[in-house]
Each structure stands twice: as structure tokens, then as C-alpha cells.
Design a protein around this nucleic acid. Structure first.
Lengths: 247, 247
DNA sequence: GCGACTTTGTGCCTGCGTTCACAAGTCGTT
DNA sequence: AACGACTTGTGAACGCAGGCACAAAGTCGC
């Protein structure tokens, strides 16, 4: 991690900022759809659910193009963020593990929306291999090296059972995949140069459980009785994601 | 958020720690299955993919029960973490939005595994209402108040399209739900006292895209050619999640 | 052309999270 | 009983992230 030293003149974008850029991007699209040609950091921050100072600082990291007194040009900012995130090109994705979840992901529209294209479905089960889903035939996991090379795949999505995750992950990496989105409940270990992000239902639920228990044991056990909640107590309408977001 | 002040003698567990406890719990189960009665912080940390010092400090926050010179009693630690996370009881969950993803979630085994039970499926579409999935009939979203009260639901899972997310979220909150797991690509705003966690495919992919682009533009464009990767370079086998984890 | 107003970009401070390194404590062996 | 090997728990240092507040910079109206 110190290995990947950022040259001084290099454009350094903090991880925390990178994690928020997609949110800003979505907010910008929302504003664009509403007809805004420009947006102030205040407006944009409200839609994105963050502090406006944080938003400005985030944008400043990518050499911001705001105009003082006016705000940000929505279209230009969309371009700027898209470029930074690498969304101006299309990324080919392999989806491995066509079970319950994998099947749903294969049909998930959100993939295509921002330049991600599932170009390969992969499984180990002979019964599933050959099956066609959304116009793509399921391939054998052992064909990964060829498939990854031929279809220029750089991102793999892992939706296998936990027990198979590490093995499949190794195969993906060996085949040349350098980014993995892991849905399996298993901590993957990968060589340097490969990025892994994990999405884990079970963990999220357990975190909610912790807070839920805390609420129950704390002050008001009758909290669930109040339909409107005792909410909106504080002056700022405080979007909850600030304290609850994954980042 | 300052509202929720932790009394000094209160057991304070930092958010970052809470987010890792589920990972430790899973690691402990793995070790238990392998026959370990005790585990050192080093072993446990390796399985969980974190630094051992961090693990020890995390465990110390919940009044740790390790024994110097020996390690941690696996069974006891499982109990300890389970209790802290509130997993000794069963949480009833409502799943709202029975589309592509919702359908998959309804059949997801991972829910039940740790005390979460889907006791209600909810949708707005009349065509889906009444349909039975995994033994549960899909209810009308307008029946939420009754359903939440009768079935003692405290956690809601949102799997609706983004456009409907805020409206449904409001209904969940009004019905008494105090924790929400949001799969929709929309920033929810909720009153104080309600926790929201979001899981967003699209965001995760875009973050990967950022790093992928960086890798491509940086030093070695031939990185994908090296099957073994230039990995395992550093002495510590560095599980990638340290730099890539959602936390 | 000028003044008042708006909004950005950022310096500074504060607090949290991570990591190192070590003292304190426990067990097994001699 | 004493010693050495091992492991936990934590004090301290460091770095990152968040937020306030303000100067710089630009726009709009007259």
C-alpha cells in the first residue's frame, strides 16, 4: 500500500472520495433530468446526501471545474467524474456462479447502465453449462483463461457459494482478471495488483442487528410504537447515510 | 448523531469494529469446524484477513475474554460476539420489492443462517401480490403497518426500483421499521433513530473501474500477461481486503 | 464600470482508526 | 519454584477524513 506511492504531480484521489463519486454522478443525472444546467454544491450535496463542504473538497481533488458565484456545470461535471472513474469506456465483466443470486445478477439492468457489460457467464455445474441466459451461454469455469483473453475481460463478479470462492477467485486471477466483486461470504486473498471489493448481505444485516439491539436496550422500548418516530428531532434533516453508509 | 452520546461507562464499540465483528464471527466458525478449541489473534486474524493488532483491539472493546499465552476460546468468543451483535435472538425481516433481485433474495439461504428470518414479502404490483415464494405470500405494500406490527418486524430490506425507494422507505418507517437495508440506487433520507445501510452494485463496480483504469494507465500495461501476477511481493501475504474492503 | 451578492476552493483543526511496540500475564518444563 | 516461550491488552504515534469558516473569484443589477 505504501508501494503504490502517488507521484506528487499525480492526481491523487482519496479512497473515500472515489467511493462517493458514483453517488455524485447519480445525483448529477437526477438534476440533469430535472432540467438543471448548473448546480451549486449545496444543491448537489443535498441530492447526494452529503455535506456540501465535503462535496466541494471531493470535487476539488479531480481538478474541479466549478464557477464561483454560479456553481458547477452539470454536463461538464458528469464528464469529469465519468472520466475519472473510467466510465467513458465499456468494461467487460465475467459473472461466475450462476446460482440463485448469479441468475438475478445476470438479469440486473443496473450493470449495463454505466458501461459495464456482462460478456461471460461461468459455472462449474455441467447442468448449468450451455444454458442460455439473457442471450449469453453459460461456460465452463475451466475455459476462463480463453474466455477472459478473447473477450477482454478485466472485471469478475463472484457469486459462488463461499466454499468455492477462493478457488474460483484464483482461476479468475490466473486468467488475467484484475478486479473482483465478491458476493460470497468468504475473505479472498489475492496477489498485489488485484482489487477486491466485497458485498455481503449477511454482514450488513448483522451490523443492523447490532444497532437494533442497542436501540431496544437503550432508552425507549416504546420507540416502535411511535408511527412518525421521534424523528426529525434535529434541525438538520440529516440524511442517515452519513452515519450508516458503507464507506 | 451527537445526540446518541455514549455514557462513559457504556460499552463503546466503534463503528469500524462493529463492521468487522461479523467477519470475525465467520472466521471463528471456520476455525471451530476445523476443530480448533482455541485460537490466537494471529491465527484468527489470518482467517479474517485483518491485522492481528487490529483484531485484538477490536475484541478488547467488547471486554475481551482472551487468555495470555494461549489465545481466545473459540466457543466463548462466538458467544461473546453473537451477544454483542444481537444474534442470540431471531430478527424478523420484511423484504420489499419482489422483482428480479428481490426474488433472489427471498431464496437466499444466507438470511436464515444467522438468525434473520424473512417473515414478509411485500410488493406494490397487483400481479405479484398473492404469489407464494418459499412458502410466504406476497402482501400489498399498503398492508405494511399491520404486517410489521403483527409479525414484529424491525428490519426492512428494500429491493425496489430506485424511483420507488424513498416512498417505500417512508412507509416502512411509518409502519415501525427502524433498520433498513437498501439495495436501491437511491440515497434514502430517514428520521433520526432509523438506521440505513446501502448495498449498491453499481457503486462497487464504478470503484473497481476507477482502480482498473488507474492500473491500465499506470506503469505496466503488460500486467495482465503475468499469470501469477507480480503479487506476493511484500513479506506479508496481504489479504487484499485491507485496502479494498468496504469499510 | 462598480458594488453587492453568491459560491467555490481550501487552510486549519479536531477526532477516529490503524499500527507499532512493549509491559503484563499465562502456561509448560525442568 | 523458577525460567523461558508465548500471547494478550494497550499506550502512543501517525495518518486520514470530516467539517468549519473565510478569502478569493466570479456574476448580476444598475
Amino acid at each position: 500500500m505504501t508501494d503504490q506511492r502517488p507521484t506528487v504531480r499525480d492526481r491523487v484521489v482519496p479512497d473515500a472520495t472515489v467511493a462517493r463519486l458514483p453517488v455524485y454522478l447519480r445525483a448529477l443525472h437526477t438534476l440533469a433530468d430535472e432540467g438543471h444546467a448548473t448546480a451549486s454544491s449545496e444543491e448537489l450535496a443535498a441530492v447526494a446526501g452529503v455535506n456540501s463542504a465535503k462535496l466541494r473538497k471531493d470535487l476539488s481533488h479531480l481538478g474541479s471545474y466549478g464557477t464561483r458565484g454560479v456553481g458547477y456545470d452539470v454536463a461538464m461535471l458528469v464528464d469529469q467524474i465519468s472520466t475519472t472513474l473510467g466510465l467513458t469506456r465499456c468494461w467487460n465483466v465475467a459473472l461466475v456462479g450462476i446460482g440463485n443470486l448469479g441468475h438475478a445478477l445476470a438479469g440486473y439492468a443496473g450493470f449495463a447502465s454505466r458501461g459495464f457489460k456482462i460478456v461471460a457467464l461461468v459455472d462449474r455445474d455441467p447442468d448449468r453449462i450451455g444454458q442460455v441466459i439473457n442471450g449469453i451461454a453459460v461456460s465452463d469455469v475451466d475455459d476462463l483463461p480463453r474466455i477472459v483473453a478473447e473477450r477482454r475481460i478485466s472485471i469478475g463478479v463472484l457469486a459462488t457459494p463461499a466454499a468455492a470462492a477462493q478457488e474460483v477467485c484464483d482461476k479468475l486471477v490466473a486468467a488475467g482478471v484484475t478486479s473482483i466483486l465478491n458476493f460470497a461470504s468468504h475473505v479472498l486473498s489475492v496477489p498485489d495488483g488485484v482489487d477486491v471489493r466485497k458485498v455481503d448481505l449477511s454482514i450488513e444485516l448483522q451490523i443492523l442487528s447490532f444497532h437494533e439491539q442497542r436501540k431496544a436496550s437503550r432508552g425507549a422500548p416504546s420507540l416502535t410504537r411511535l408511527p412518525g418516530g421521534r424523528g426529525a428531532a434535529g434541525p438538520p434533516p440529516s440524511t442517515a447515510d452519513e452515519k450508516a453508509a458503507n464507506g
